[in-house]
């Protein structure tokens, strides 16, 4: 399913956080969302996922304005992985994955074979099958992150939004998670801090700066030394020697 946003504006009180953001993501594409802290990445993800209402502009999924789609219908197609999800409740990994089936179950319906298959498959996809009965509280930060991605997968979405999914993960799991997201047969929009990971795994990258889109295109087009200097205020050397489509950034200590 495609994701399209046109002229999104959003703010808190008089402070504008996103101004005039437009984007278009094709079916099956992985879009990386990068930008400095406070540039509006998380807010944009929430507007696109329908968790916040824009002050003006529209967000469309598969050509339909999400403001007109009932919450549950939307959740059957769209999953959102928040960063640092936490709870005090004593739930098992399996309980958490079962929550992913919420939009597909009516108030009193039982647990179907399809629900079971979705949960089992999602747990296997993130390599956590052996942890099914474990208490969520006893998981490491990285394991929690993988469980939440598995939960989003159990939701069987067509579009997935991920807010810095590689937070807390070691490099092996960062790469594993992004490879998983890239290879999924769904449209995904991922906010990322690590620019090299964004270059490695995203089909296209959108750069936000102070609530505006300053660049959008393939990693090779977007990640230039000029842009890194202007937006992120760092000196870096961009190398295209290994793969011209996947630039590698080497930051200078100064």
């Amino acid at each position: 399913m495609s994701v399209v946003a046109s002229n999104l504006v959003w703010g808190v009180r008089r402070k504008t956080i996103l101004s005039d953001v437009s984007l278009s993501v094709a079916q099956g594409e992985t879009l990386g969302l990068i930008g400095p802290n406070g540039s509006g990445k998380s807010s944009l993800l929430r507007l696109l996922a329908g968790l916040k209402r824009p002050q003006s502009g529209r967000a469309l999924i598969n050509g339909q304005d999400i403001a007109t789609v009932p919450r549950r219908k939307l959740a059957q197609q769209v999953a959102f992985v928040q960063q640092n999800a936490a709870t005090d409740t004593n739930v098992s990994v399996r309980d958490v994955l079962r929550l992913g089936r919420t939009p597909h179950r009516s108030a009193l319906s039982g647990w179907s074979a399809a629900d079971e298959a979705a949960v089992t498959g999602a747990l296997a996809a993130v390599g956590m099958s052996g942890h099914s009965a474990q208490a969520w509280q006893t998981l490491s930060g990285g394991e929690r992150q993988r469980v939440h991605i598995a939960r989003a997968l159990a939701q069987a979405p067509r579009v997935m939004f991920l807010d810095e999914p590689t937070n807390h993960l070691d490099i092996q799991h960062q790469i594993e998670i992004l490879r998983l997201v890239r290879d999924l047969d769904l449209t995904s929009i991922v906010a990322l801090h690590d620019l090299n990971l964004a270059a490695m795994f995203c089909d296209r990258i959108l750069v936000l700066h102070a609530g505006r889109v300053v660049a959008c295109g393939s990693p090779g087009e977007v990640l230039t030394e000029d842009l890194l200097r202007q937006v992120f205020r760092v000196e870096a050397e961009v190398s295209l020697s290994a793969d011209p489509a996947r630039p590698h950034i080497r930051f200078r200590a100064g």
Binding site: R72, K73, V96, L99, T102, P103
Partner: peptide, 19 residues
């Protein structure tokens, strides 16, 4: 079921399709 969805907070419940 909706109450279960509040386990990880209000926004997470909304993302799971709970009004």
């Amino acid at each position: 079921r909706s109450l279960d969805a509040f386990t990880f907070g209000d926004e997470d419940a909304a993302a799971l399709g709970v009004p």
